[in-house]
Write a protein that binds this DNA or RNA. Structure first.
Length: 132
RNA sequence: CUACAAACCCGAGCUAUCGCUUUGCAUAUUGCAAUGAGGAAAGUCCGGACAGCAUAGAGCAAUUUACUGGUUAAUCGCCAGGUGCAGAUUUAUCUGCAACAGAAAGUGCCACAGAAAAUAACUACUCAAAACUUGUUUUGAGAAAAGGUGAAAACGUAGUGUAAGAGACUACGGCAAAUUGCAGUAAUGUAGUUUGUGGGUAAACCUUAAAUGCUGUAAUGCCACGUAUAGAUGCUUUUGAGGGCUGCUCGCUCAAAGCUGAAAAGCAAGUAUCAGGGUAGGCAGCAAGAUUUAGUUAGUAAUAACUAAGCUAGAUAAAUGAUAGUUUAGAAACAGAAUCCGGCUUAUGAGGUUUGUAGUUUU
């Protein structure tokens, strides 16, 4: 029984090599203020859904602000990833969320709302990918 | 009592649910337990530890520092003292500030105004000569005493002196340098003697004195995986390379002296640059040390010594969080470790302590 809301190390997209591939070959879409890069791989690892988050250093010079945004994004993914895990079985989804707005998010609720939209859209992209 | 300013202290707690890092244990991939940012973690401005490379030397340049002593692993830090300037009043003390060696080695610069900003003659002054309109003009020389300008004008006052004047000379005083005595570890102070009287600017060049290897934990070492030195260009084979450290010079150290050929050259070797290929995983470094708190002793102090007690962040796209409630005081300010320490600088809400200033009330 997998814990429903966990977000541990294997579920993160981490290495620089993976990220290079993701930005080079992956597709992307925008649900403001979130830009999502995603990539479906044929190899089947232990985790079917993997996610990373990032914030531009240009927009936020202070490390405290970047940490705050990244924590909110991770929290959003952690609590709303369930639909993706149910749907995606045949391939491995890696995606990376970039926060591109220049103003800080007001609170968690705003981020969560956007995150739900991201999850729905990713689910749709997956079904298209399988169909083609 | 209120307001403002400065310095210092402090840098929220509790409950529930869902999570994260690291560690330990186990019934082992899930449980349980423990653990988890700062006073500045920031700026990267100084100084070290640690590591790698280098490690005969000399000279010139370059860079840094600049009152004295102490302190420290070390410093451009800190403490104490001195000097100068400013402010305050209690008038001899306190507080603050100081790129605090040299302008008497040399070169440069000094806005505006002013005749002139440094080998001072514009006006006015004195003398001589010439001219004539006979008290003026012109020319030459002397002269920094008077004038106005300016941030600053060629030591001040009085006298002597002189054609008129001038530190040209004299007296008193100011300032500077050298030197002697005394006090002090010293900077320096003080009293005397001698010499001088030369405007400012060294955060202009510069001079003097002292000091100075480079690169930084993405250092560095080990293991694993993987491949390719195949190639191009230049140079050399009596020269090349290395390194003196940031640069140059002298000297120094190391390597090689090959083969074919009549020669040109070729092969080979060495070396530099370019181009290209592979890996970008793990472990160590990496958390207990110039350590923190308290006390005692030494010292004016910075600090040191001793005694006792205490001290589990350690990631690598990078943990320390989210939501709800609650308490203070308002959904707490500035802000997030990345090799580690000591300082400096800057940011910082509420509350507290101390000091100063202003006002109000009472006595």
């Amino acid at each position: 029984m997998i814990k429903q809301f966990s977000y541990s190390k294997p579920q993160k997209v981490k290495s620089r090599k993976e990220l290079d591939i993701l930005f080079k070959n992956g597709k992307s879409f925008l649900i403001f203020p979130l830009k999502v890069f995603y990539f479906f791989a044929d190899i089947s690892g232990a985790e079917k859904v993997r996610c990373g988050v990032g914030v531009s250093k240009k927009h936020y010079a202070k490390a405290v602000d970047r940490n705050r945004i990244k924590r909110l994004l991770r929290e959003g993914f952690r609590l709303n990833k369930a639909p993706l895990q149910e749907t995606i079985q045949q391939k491995q989804l890696s995606f990376f969320i970039l926060y591109i707005d220049k103003t800080m998010p007001e609170n968690y609720a705003a981020v969560e709302d956007k995150m739900k939209q991201v999850v729905i859209k990713l689910n749709k992209r997956y079904t298209d990918e399988i169909a083609s």
